[in-house]
Design a protein around this nucleic acid. Structure first.
Lengths: 406, 406
DNA sequence: TACGAATGTTCGCGCAAAGAACAAACTCGG
DNA sequence: CCGAGTTTGTTCTTTGCGCGAACATTCGTA
């Protein structure tokens, strides 16, 4: 039951049903390909004539293509339909503190080429570098296929409608309009998004076909900070000021270590990679000293994970302590949003076998009901490049989204 | 951007645009009544002919009626349209621990009659009592007007689709199907809903016309427990198991008083009315002893509020301490959901002048940004019967909601 | 080779959106 | 008092799409 916003509504026209049914059909093909027109007619409960009509439109738009006919037990052999993905390209860009990754993918998120370079913090210089590299990538690997856009994933708060980066402390960006210069330099449609939200979008839109696709879940990223992408009713929750989902700064205790946000006892102060590494080094977490300490010690979170997997006691203890607090934080998410699952991303997921039992124990101890305690907690390994998949999703998803009506 | 659920979608038919535009038109009349056809045509950007056509349909359905013509500076005088509310009735029922309230209202939520009786905990006996009272109310105050349904508001978890009360500890109900027996006994459509969610729905659907209607907000109720109704993108968030919004059991500190949920340091253990009264009485909060203590002392939350308003130091201190923790709890809501406003309901709102500055101070100290710190916190006084308005909204809202498409 | 069965296409009907034309009802100025 | 101008509301025609029925196609099988 949704309320109609009378200040900003979309009226239905004569073409609205067509628009809606085209989109439904496209999504059915996406999730059941290969699929015949007759099967689509059955699933949509419309006549086969209508399906012919709609598919013709989608094929002429280049959204679908028709494969070969296929054997069937009796009767005319059906002609299978597919979503056109392999010859539509997307450039996904992941800007991180140290490195920037560029991946050329097809429309379903399959990687075609990947490269990286040291992150350039000046926005315009970054645009120039990207222009050069994207052109080279498309020339060498594009094979003349059409590029549909570029998805830029940024570690910070983004106004998705304008593509303006509101605040990305790791890059030193505040109120930077990166979309317009990028679009002008590249001649491509550009979408900019916050990293955890992009990861959540990839999960929702580029999941394995056939797998149950969650429409109510939370994606939690554990890296230098704790970020999250919240999806409710199949839509991302942004909140008033694009600042929804700041579970990282939910306090787990009064007092506790000082956090970068100025508060005390924040989830992030216990579970960020900085916190985990400094715990491993035997230091208390305090924002002023920790960065230097961690940097000078030359120990990274990857090292701690590796040593924990080799069962080095101090590393195991540091990670288990992180898991303990993370479990407490996830319990808060479960209580407030009751998602069907929580996805956890970040380097520490490599040691999931160590973390999972601790996290599960903490959640069970805190959950209000057995069902809530059983909420699946799913790791997403960094080796699958979730942020780059997110970049692809930024461009691909709008082509499959429900039209906005009423 | 919403994902289409291919397992459960609604295909558009030839009549879909009509359905959508009828609903948009109805909502425009609702928020701008009295309004002429010509003005509607301008707002919807359709021809006046279309409006005549659509309004004729809505008038024949009994959703709108046409008032008198009205003066205009020049040209033909417009005929004003109104939503038909005064001769469509709704019964709202608020089942609470001690008393049950029944209110007969019109479709816009205006009270026609109100009565109450001691709550009957046996579901079937309650149904029988309601049958008797509703029949009497309609006979004495109905004046032959049609009753469109009954909205039942319950202090507990409800599966809104089936109308089953999953768990209402105050009533001792677990898995009680109250809707079907009520519908059969009364011959009326019945909707059952959790109290804070119903309050949120009333806020969204029965707000003053003209006022900016929030589509992203949280309604927090402070009574024996802390409940909440969360609205995102104009839709209620229910979560996996109808257990979203349990902000009452978010821990504010490690350790702290034991809560009824078994946890420690829950928001509810600091800010429920039980906690406030026991604090006033000088007792620590612990679930076993507190109920007896509060009961035997004969001091109610209303007494504490009254004494605080008379500036009795102990009462003021008890309430300010409650406000301090409530502010910390609301800060968590702001961080996680970033709503455009938070509405606070419950007896303690009578002393809002004492609470507001403390709550605001606590939020400011914890908020991540200035904008977040400025999130409006709005009290809703119990004298406006928010739960009964919620009951009306349960029946009225579906008639105005956007049709589910795609 | 005829028949049944399934897929895919074509065609005609009916309904609603869209917009133009028309009717109605008022003000104002001569 | 009457006509021009203006705004509202209705009616009528055109257009396009959903929808179902009929038709064409292509297979297996008797």
């Amino acid at each position: 039951m949704r309320k109609i916003n009378t200040r900003s509504f979309v009226r239905a026209t004569r073409w609205t049903p067509r628009e809606i049914n085209l989109q439904i059909l496209l999504n059915l093909v996406r999730e059941h390909e290969p699929i015949s027109r007759a099967e689509l007619a059955r699933r949509m409960k419309i006549g086969r004539g209508m399906v012919t009509y709609l598919t013709a439109e989608l094929i002429s738009q280049g959204a679908l293509y028709q494969g070969d006919t296929v054997d069937s037990p009796r009767g005319r052999r059906p002609q299978m339909l597919y979503v056109r993905t392999h010859d539509r390209l997307v450039v996904a860009v992941d800007v991180r503190f140290s490195s920037t990754f560029i991946m050329l993918t097809d429309f379903s998120g399959h990687a075609i080429a990947l490269e990286s370079f040291d992150t350039i913090y000046d926005p315009l210089a970054l645009v120039a570098e990207l222009k050069h590299r994207v052109a080279r990538l498309l020339a060498s690997h594009g094979e003349g296929r059409h590029c549909e856009g570029l998805g830029l994933v940024v570690p910070g708060m983004v106004d998705a409608t304008t593509g303006r980066v509101l605040n990305a402390p790791q890059l030193g960006w505040r109120n930077v309009d990166i979309r317009k210069p990028l679009e002008e330099a590249l001649g491509l449609a550009v979408q900019v998004e916050n990293a955890p939200i992009a990861c959540a979008l990839a999960r929702m839109w580029l999941g394995q076909p056939g797998a149950a696709v969650p429409t109510d879940f939370v994606y939690v990223t554990v890296s230098d900070g704790i970020g999250s992408g919240v999806v409710v009713n199949g839509q991302v929750v942004r909140g008033q000021t694009n600042s929804a989902g700041e579970f990282g700064h939910v306090p787990l205790m009064d007092g506790g270590p000082l956090c970068l946000c100025g508060g005390r006892g924040c989830l992030e102060a216990f579970t960020s990679n900085l916190a985990t590494v400094s715990r491993y080094l035997g230091a208390d977490f305090s924002p002023d000293t920790v960065r230097n300490l961690v940097h000078s010690s030359n120990v990274t979170i990857a090292d701690v994970v590796t040593r924990a997997l080799a069962r080095e006691p101090r590393a195991v203890a540091a990670l288990e302590e992180t898991a303990r607090h993370l479990g407490a934080g996830l319990a808060v998410i479960i209580k407030t949003l009751s998602p069907t699952q929580i996805v956890v991303g970040g380097e520490i997921t490599e040691a999931w076998e160590l973390l999972a039992p601790v996290i599960r124990r903490e959640i069970s101890a805190r959950a209000l009901t057995d069902l809530a305690a059983a909420t699946p907690i799913v790791p997403e390994l960094a080796t699958t490049y979730p942020r780059l998949r997110g970049g692809t999703a930024l461009i691909a998803a709008p082509r499959f989204a429900a039209p906005r009506i009423a």
